[in-house]
Nucleic acid binder design. Structure first.
Lengths: 216, 216
DNA sequence: AAATGGTTTAACCATATGGTCAATTTTACC
DNA sequence: GGTAAAATTGACCATATGGTTAAACCATTT
């Protein structure tokens, strides 16, 4: 009957493959597991995509473009720099909370040095024309010239923002374990922690960038 | 003759295995490649360590304890908080520059959720008693009570420091590609970039933590 | 030099895994 | 209903891979 437009097999495969590749990486993923999770026969994977690497490349492409375009959208239209920064941090953290495995997956893939990932990254960057970093850098430069912000290099600042937001999600198990060893017995409240993290990142980075006087 | 104390086969294996596992992860590494890089027969791997997982666990243990103990040492004895923070950032960046693949390796392993890594992490933390985080947190609290630092949560601040330092190394290929797309044609000078990074992190984070007045 | 015990190797094994094939089922169209 | 094309499947294949075995090698002791 199919009144409710259930997803095509191709779509089922891509979803399952996304899950498995995100969890285990290219070499750790098994075609059989993808097939099982998609609820189909393994041969269908090859029927639709020929090879494992093809599926992987598709996933990589989807993840890349989805993630980057969502980051683009995270660049709000607030008036003040403070508002833009806050919105950017908030939306980036939301995006990360919804896709906690993505950063590690992308980093790991790129570090492996495979050409697949690099090609896709280059294509994605070319396609999206990276308006976000340029706009952010431009905005910071502008505020600096207006005398509102200190002389910190905008690109370095951007990397610090990204690192501050992303690190927790990439290293969550380590962070948790270390926290537990610092505060034994205290359970980890992820929601509260992320809310606090949000505020803390903004506080430190905003005031770190604001204009000041002396330097030790 | 062997006058010059060349490394034992076991040592050769561990070195080669370290390289291969750091590059490719557990599932991506091949026993044959480890043997080849060590310049020995594959059977010797099993003779000394029985299984692949055993070798992997040894590497994981070495990397963990070496890395954590070196981070401990990075906690200098400077007088002012500014000096301690600067020294910590400097030494952490040095350590990362010397072992750029370690963070991603550890993160990836922990995220995979294997018990090997978690066990070793717990043991390492218990063994080293994590003096560093505790000391750093204590120092920040102390300075806050003395009225020198703002009310930012010390643990959150610590994560921000780590993220700011580590992110670049974990995501270097992405960062480079994005930079190239922002500044086409300009070659990437890694040395200069890292020197600038060092200064920028300190500037932003130190002034971000310092006491201030208003809050938007 | 024979014996002993640790080390090293080539050949081999069992299984896992990506991928193919032929046959069957389903769908679309007449 | 019949037919052709697309979709789907179970059986199968070739290779890669972690691991084992038995024999050879080598150093040390007696």
């Amino acid at each position: 009957m199919n009144t409710q437009a259930d997803p095509s097999k191709e779509e089922l495969i891509l979803r399952a493959a996304g899950d498995v590749f995100l969890e285990k990486g290219l070499s750790g993923a098994r075609m059989q597991e993808i097939a099982d999770r998609a609820g189909i026969n393994k041969t269908l994977l090859h029927y639709y995509f020929r090879t494992k690497k093809n599926i992987y490349a598709r996933i990589l492409g989807k993840v890349f473009s989805a993630f980057f375009s969502q980051i683009e959208e995270a660049f709000g239209d607030g008036s003040s720099f403070a508002a833009v920064l806050r919105q950017f941090i908030d939306r980036l953290l939301d995006l990360l909370a919804a896709n906690p495995r993505v950063p590690l997956f992308l980093m790991q893939e790129l570090a492996q040095g495979g050409t697949i990932a690099r090609d896709i990254l280059v294509k994605t960057l070319a396609h999206q024309r990276m308006t976000l970093p340029k706009r952010l850098v431009a905005l910071i430069r502008q505020e600096q010239q207006a005398g509102h912000l200190g002389p910190v290099d905008p690109i370095q600042f951007m990397i610090t923002v990204l690192g501050s937001c992303i690190y927790f999600f990439a290293a969550e198990p380590i962070v948790r374990e270390v926290l537990a060893s610092i505060q034994p017995g205290k359970p980890f409240d992820r929601e509260a922690f992320l809310a606090q993290r949000r505020q803390s990142i903004f506080d430190v980075l905003y005031y770190g960038l604001k204009k000041r006087e002396q330097s030790p």
